[in-house]
Design a protein around this nucleic acid. Structure first.
Lengths: 186, 186
DNA sequence: GAGGTGTAAGTTAGCACTCACTCACACTTT
DNA sequence: AAAGTGTGAGTGAGTGCTAACTTACACCTC
């Protein structure tokens, strides 16, 4: 790139925006849109609250950016799993399903962010639009790669949604029959 | 409006608590735990905000009561559908599934409350406990009546969760392929 | 020195929750 | 049957706190 000075102390706004999004994702994911405060997020990102509002005009815009980042991570995971399955010849749909449960264990924040975005959707049109395109992109990728039909796709997504909910209510550590049955295969 | 009556008739605290819960459910469902204010709920119930806190010690307790009411409505719906299916000899699991999609259309607040309770669970132990017992009760009722095994139950719940999410992001009016596929059967 | 990076110190609005108080009314007492 | 009285129903007007967002200014970098 540019012959930049090695002693630069300031970041570019774009770099900061990137780190801010990364810091915001887990906070929004764990606390939700309304309960997460911009002060908390600013602290997590290591910048002042004022600068948050220089980088994103409103809290909603920051939330949408974080949701988009979550969506990007999911897509990347699916794409990688599909590539693997393609070369090893295993079932595409199953491979991508496994990739999701793997992601969920490794990077729980993405899952929580997904859930939080879903419930924030009815009240915030910008978030709703982001969620709709998230579903569209995943659907197109997964259906395209696997060749699965509508019925199969519905079952595949449904299972993913169940995983999310079971994680949110922390059913996986419970010994009860219902919890065992509903978290099986995660 | 009627000329300010000098006399007001009092209810019992239990009656008021009941109407308060009924008023709170849609507000919490649509706005979420944190975004819904106790002022808004008090107005919906037609009482003063101060009295809300006489009837429930904290906002969380009110939320849990509203979630429990939602859970009760779902259980009643399933029980009725199961009774019907029993006398007409149709499939129990399918009958209860249909009953759910019917409930969701008729009484969307119950669905939204369910979703809001799910995401509020990680942060509020009381809410989480309520959600877990909600799932347990539904599981026991549905598994008991239908005789379905773990695998079948998982698919049944998964489909329900997908319905919830599709409703939250308002996918049902969309024409796109993904939206059509994922909302089919609702 | 112009323009981008960054912040300390606000402002305004809304929140959950409290307090001191009034009113309705069932149940005596006369 | 009228007057008195005890108690639960109900509220207006706060409290202190925290939220999102702004302004004015300092400091880098080129």
């Amino acid at each position: 790139m540019a012959p930049q000075t090695k002693t630069r102390t300031l970041s570019t706004a774009d770099e900061r925006r990137e780190t801010l999004i990364e810091a915001a994702l887990p906070v929004f994911g764990r606390r939700g849109f309304h309960a997460a405060s911009t002060v908390e997020i600013a602290e997590a990102a290591g910048i002042s609250q004022a600068y948050v509002f220089r980088l994103f005009p409103t809290k909603v815009d920051l939330f949408v950016a974080a949701a988009a980042e979550g969506s990007r991570r999911m897509l990347a995971t699916f794409r990688a799993a599909s590539d693997d399955a393609r070369s090893s010849g295993t079932d595409q749909l199953e491979a991508m399903g496994r990739a999701y449960t793997g992601l969920v264990e490794r990077d729980r924040d993405v899952l929580l962010m997904q859930l939080q975005s879903q419930v924030a959707s009815p009240g915030e049109p910008k978030i709703r639009e982001q969620m709709q395109s998230c579903f569209r992109e995943i659907y197109e990728l997964v259906a395209g790669r696997s060749g699965a039909g509508a019925e199969e796709m519905r079952a595949w997504f449904a299972h993913g949604m169940l995983c999310n909910v079971m994680a949110a209510i922390e059913a996986e550590n419970l010994k009860d029959e219902w919890a065992r049955a509903l978290t099986a295969g995660d």
